[in-house]
Design a protein around this nucleic acid. Structure first.
Lengths: 251, 251
DNA sequence: TAGTGGTCTAGACCACCGT
DNA sequence: CGGTGGTCTAGACCACTAG
């Protein structure tokens, strides 16, 4: 059996299903497959690439496990839209006395141009050789639950990629930034890494969280990546350590 | 095709591969399959239960994903021995100035009989109607890295299930408790849940960690379960908040 | 009702492991 | 070398979704 797709692939020593997975990831990254409609049916993909349906199925299953695709029985397989904007709140208790979950609200404190520190430049892989390469846009944001401050966030993005942001009206920013990055700046956040540690509140952090300076705080550093694995946003969040909680399952 | 195994199963509305998974889990829990040798080959299982090899394969893959089994190509499929005794140290920096990982050492501070608090009794699901149901054995342990205290642990287990422990010599306890639970008390830890939060050092904790009272500490509460999903050990660990760090990947 | 993914069959050949 | 899991084929029928 001749595999019609082999010429398109880089490393034919890999199993066919892995080569297919790689190919499908490229289609997603290049926008040939997107959220607007289902990807082609398994049967059609098998015919197109000259492989058995089971092989296509295995390739798709790998991408479902990796979070790129979602299957909907009877309907089709779709490109997954990353959705973890509220993920930070899994770290913090924000329930009332009856244990009811309270909805967090965002308030933008400031939007300004700035020059990246060496640490931020390194995280965002900013290119200093470009004219404005080290320019960043910095957002400060407060997230509250029923009027009470829960999190203070210090957010940095490249001014070159996000220049539409500086002209936008902060009052129109919704509770979630990532959909806005998408619509305004054409930046699609796909994944992120977070590192949690404990520290003490600086004067600024203490003021926004309405606690004394040096109060223990949880510090969550998030680096968000786009679909091409380029870092696009560096975010440091501070929350009251006394409200911090997190659960893990060990196996 | 008649499925010879159907009579053994509870809910024949489920897919065959799920019914097989459930059956295999029971074999593992009842000790019919154990770590001492590979489980039967896929081909043999398919013949035994009158299903296609691919169906057995899918059942096994589900159990591999769930952590019950491991595959070894060319050798066989084996029951997995849970191994996360040192998992706590993923939360704490314990490297030297050159960034080298340092090996943690355990020191048992005390082994004593006690009566469970209501919280511990609830966590361990102790049965107060039994004569000694609320009796526990309590271990205090210090974990150090190059002479420096890193973690203080307060560990509770049921005195009924762990009575061999009270007669054992603490000096013979190794760095890992779970292998000892297995050999001495025939308790096999399979999984655990951990909840991380933040507090301040009590007088006792402060003394062992060699810091002032009320110093910020990370508190890690672990509940460990055996293979039948019975809680068997309740462990609260305290470590310096300033050394705490943890990373998560969001997708 | 047509089309999709979900399940299942009954094989084949290959890569790897231990003897 | 024989036996194991890893990959792949070429179908079948069923359950579900959406028009």
């Amino acid at each position: 059996m001749i595999n019609a797709f082999k010429s398109k692939l880089t490393d034919s020593r890999l199993p066919i299903y892995q080569q297919l997975s790689d190919l499908f990831v490229k289609k997603i990254q290049q926008g040939q497959w997107d959220e607007s409609r289902a990807i082609p049916a398994e049967h059609d993909l098998a015919a197109e690439y000259g492989v058995a349906p089971g092989t296509v199925r295995k390739a798709i299953e790998a991408l479902v496990a990796a979070g790129y695709l979602v299957r909907k029985q009877g309907s089709g397989t779709y490109v997954r839209r990353a959705n973890f904007g509220n993920a930070l709140f899994r770290f913090f208790r924000h329930t009332d006395q009856q244990g009811r979950m309270l909805a967090p609200v965002s308030r933008i404190l400031s939007v300004s141009r700035d020059v990246a520190t060496s640490r931020v430049a390194e995280k965002l892989r900013l290119d200093p050789s470009q004219g404005e390469g080290l320019q960043i846009i910095r957002l400060m944001r407060l997230r509250q639950v029923s009027e009470e401050p829960l999190l203070f966030e210090d957010i940095c993005v490249s001014a070159l990629r996000f220049k539409a942001l500086i002209d936008a009206d902060p009052a129109t920013f919704g509770d979630l930034l990532y959909p806005m990055y998408d619509s305004l700046c054409n930046v699609r956040v796909q994944r992120a890494t977070e590192t949690i540690s404990f520290g003490r509140a600086s004067r600024e952090v203490a003021r926004y969280l309405q606690v004394p300076k040096d109060e223990p705080v949880a510090v969550i550093e998030r680096l968000a990546y786009d679909i091409n694995d380029q870092p696009v946003e560096w975010r440091v969040s501070y929350g009251l350590a006394s409200r911090f909680t997190y659960s893990v399952e060990l196996k």
